[in-house]
Structure formats: C-alpha cells, structure tokens
C-alpha cells in the first residue's frame, strides 16, 4: 500500500522532513498521550483488576478466575440482568429498525414542509437522556400520566407501565422507540443514495409500492440496517441512564439491566474487580454477537453492484 513512501522515509529524511515529522508528532502528542493514559491504560488495567478483588483504597487482592466463576455459576442476579438486557435488545432493535425505516421512507416523500417534519422527528434525539427519562416517567404515570389518560378516553384501562414488573420492560422499549431519530437520519441518507432510475424502471414495469419496497429499497438499505443493528446492540448493552433515572432497577428487578448491575457492583458495593470482570464478559459477548451478525447477514446484505 503505502510502503514505497515509508521505505523512502526510512532510507533518509531530509532535515526539513525530520523537522516536520517532529513537529507533527509534537502537535499530535496531547491526543496520543491522552489516549494512552486515559483510555489504553484503564482498559488494560481493567483486565488485571478483573482477576482481583479490588475496593479502590486497598491494594488489589489476586483471586484468579473467581470473579468470572462467581458471575457465571453463582450469581443468579447476573443472569437476571442479562435476560433483561437481551429482552430489551430483542424488541428494541427490530422495532427501532422498522420505525426508523418507516419514518425515513415517509420523510423521503416530497411534500411541502418536508424539512419541518424531519426536524420534528429528529428532535427527541437531541433531548438529554436524563431529561427525556423524567419526561417519560410522567407520561407513564399510571394515575396522572398522559398515556393512561388517552387510553381511558378510548375506554381502555391502562396498565401500571413503569411501576408494574410485567410492563416495565415494554415501557422502556416504547420509550426507546421515541429516540430513533438519529437512525432515521442515517436511513434517510441511504434512501437518497438509492438509484432513482431503478425506481423509474420498476414503475414502468408496473411494480406496486410494496414490491418496490421489498425488491428495491430493502436491498439497497441492507448495509445501513446492518450497521445500525450492530451499533444498537452495543448501545443496548450499555443501556443505563434511563434505568438509573427512572427505576433504579425496580420494580422487583424487572429493569435491572447489565450496565446498571455493573455500576452497582463498582460504585455502590466497592467491587471493582467484579465489575471489571462483568465489563469484559460484556465485551466478549458483544464481539461474539457482532461476529454472528456479520456471518449470518453476509449473503443478505447487498453492497450495490458487488
């Protein structure tokens, strides 16, 4: 690739090039050092801590695989949090894709005020998580919330939403769908990238809107969908703020998600080693899942013309 250039440099830099190299490195040094000290070191250190019992002030106490063993074989709450996380992921991700894609297709239609609609649907994305969580707490309020009031008008007795253990996770999923704006924008960009001449050809051949969606739009959008699914998966493993603000894991552990339990172990129970082990298990799980998604989707994803 760039080897000829490199070889040339190695053979002998002119004084000017050497000066450039030096000042270039110097200018980049803060970023490089920052990355090494504040990112690389903590990440590597957390591998070590995951094999210890560590409560911050005392030196870490080497325990070998104990943290991993306890997590996998002796901590039912670990599996509860894993289940909760997967539950939220399995529903949030496909629904987000469908909703974001639907919105993107609607907003791709050329009508008056198109940019205003786009702004409106994107708007929830820029509301900070803490603020939107507090807002949704009120929307979900079973007695005074707008959701149950609306349901009451159409004759439905609404559930307890976030305060009912069997409705708490669905409530979070509904709330997540409210924030699909950023995926909608990415899909919208993808839609505008699909070749218009193919649509015109399809129309000439008498294709219905449904056929155009299934045979034209979806194949062209598949790389975007794959991309968003993977990022959503990672995002859901880190799902924390909403739960922390709204339920703190309750009611009855229904919303105790993985990142929440990790945080509790680290900062409430002073089990930094245990929490580090959880973080690495999460990392391994996401890498595996990403790999599986890539493998299983390879034939279904269409990269224009390949």
């Amino acid at each position: 690739m760039a080897t000829p250039a490199l070889r040339f440099k190695r053979r002998g830099l002119s004084p000017q090039q050497r000066r450039d190299l030096r000042s270039g490195l110097l200018f980049a040094a803060p970023a490089i050092l920052g990355l090494l000290i504040f990112v690389a070191y903590p990440v590597l250190a957390s591998i070590y801590f995951s094999f210890t019992s560590y409560s911050i002030l005392q030196p870490p106490f080497w325990t070998g695989w104990e943290n991993y063993q306890t997590l996998l074989f002796d901590d039912p709450l670990f599996y509860t949090t894993l289940y909760n996380t997967f539950y939220i992921a399995i529903f949030t991700i496909p629904l987000s894709v469908i909703v974001a894609m639907g919105l993107a297709m609607l907003l791709n239609v050329k009508v008056r005020g198109q940019s205003i609609y786009r702004t409106i649907f994107y708007l929830p994305t820029i509301v900070p998580f803490v603020a939107s969580s507090v807002l949704w707490l009120w929307i979900f309020n079973p007695q005074y919330g707008i959701l149950n009031t609306l349901l009451w008008y159409i004759g439905i007795q609404g559930p307890g939403w976030i305060s009912d253990p069997s409705w708490a996770k669905p409530s979070l999923i509904i709330m997540n769908l409210w924030g699909v704006g950023s995926w909608m924008v990415i899909y919208l960009a993808g839609l505008q990238d699909t070749p218009q001449e193919l649509y015109e050809a399809a129309e000439l051949d008498g294709a219905t809107a449904w056929q155009k969606t299934i045979y034209l739009t979806l194949p062209f959008m598949s790389p975007y969908i794959l991309f968003s699914v993977i990022l959503m998966l990672i995002g859901i493993f880190q799902y924390f703020t909403q739960v922390f603000v709204m339920t703190n894991g309750g009611p009855a552990d229904a919303t105790r998600v993985y990142a929440m339990y990790l945080y509790q172990n680290a900062f409430t129970y002073f089990k930094m080693g245990y929490a580090s082990a959880m973080a690495w298990l999460m990392f391994v799980m996401v890498v595996l899942l990403t790999f599986v998604i890539f493998r299983t989707s390879a034939r279904r994803v269409y990269y224009g013309g390949q």
Binding site: S46, I234, M272, A279, F283
Partner: peptide, 9 residues
C-alpha cells in the same frame, strides 16, 4: 464505544 465503559471501572 466500549472503551469508556471498561475505563469506567
């Protein structure tokens, strides 16, 4: 995306 989380520990 994972780095901050691992670093958080």
């Amino acid at each position: 995306a994972f780095l901050p989380l691992l670093a958080a520990c």
